[in-house]
Amino acid sequence: MVKGMRMDWGRMLFYLLLTAFALLMLAPLVYLASSAFKPTAELFLFPPRFFVMNPTTKNFYQLLLVTGTSFVPFTRYIFNSLIVTTAIVAGGIFISSLAAYPLAKHKMPFRSAIFNMIVFSLMFSPMVLQIPQYLVISRIGLMNTYFAQIIPYLAAPVGMFLMVQFARQIPEALLEAARIDGANEWKVFWVLVLPMLQPAIATFALFSFIQAWNDPYPAMVYSTHEDMKSLPIAIQTISGGAGVVARVGTFAAASFLMIIPTILVFIITQRMVLQTMAHSGLKG
């Protein structure tokens, strides 16, 4: 693939620079991982060290068995987070792609108005929306259910924006051909549009996974029971509060555990994501 791979000085310098940057980029991850295995004595070393010297799994034991946070086992938080996040990602993909298709490819009234609304809402701070959203949820009577943590996030403007931009590039002739061959709109969507949207879907899946997995607010706001809370809250409880000093190790372990699924999702979707960005609707 690469022609003439001579190792001259310029090339050496180039790789050196790249590796230096890459190391800096990897730093937070490595630090997180190494802290998770540090024994208590090392966590409080001054000056703090980057790498662990005597790795131990004590932190993980403490996290899973003793838990320390409350009477709810740590695994319950993992379970809650998994359910909510999976539902948000899957539902969000379905709803956004379904809506993106007509918005990109059909002529209809209010089309540009709807699109402008999406762009508009991308810029608004989510913090201010929390209380009106809360009022809606409590009026529908969904408090303390998983639905309350899922439904508000299904109609995400980000995913919609991405998919509309991407769907615009599907050639009109292809859709026309399918329609002439007698496919109804649903079939056109299912057989043609959805597969062609795949890179955009992967990208959105990654972003919405990161978002949903890390966001403590839904569980904080929409549920009052401890056993409905999610991982990010558990982590905040571990890191804050009265017993901070004792729990630094547990916190490191919990943070490390929390990052793992995100990295897995990244590895799975990575190829598609880089591809989407490479020829996505950004040109439009």
Binding site: F21, A22, M25, L26, P28, L29, L32, I210, Q211, W213, N214, D215, P216, P232, I235, Q236, S255, M258, I259, T262, I263, F266, Q270, V273, L274
Partner: peptide, 12 residues
């Protein structure tokens, strides 16, 4: 190079 986005966007 994309990795920090994943970690940095989180509460962690």
């Amino acid at each position: 190079f994309f990795l920090p986005v994943i970690i940095a966007s989180g509460a962690v």
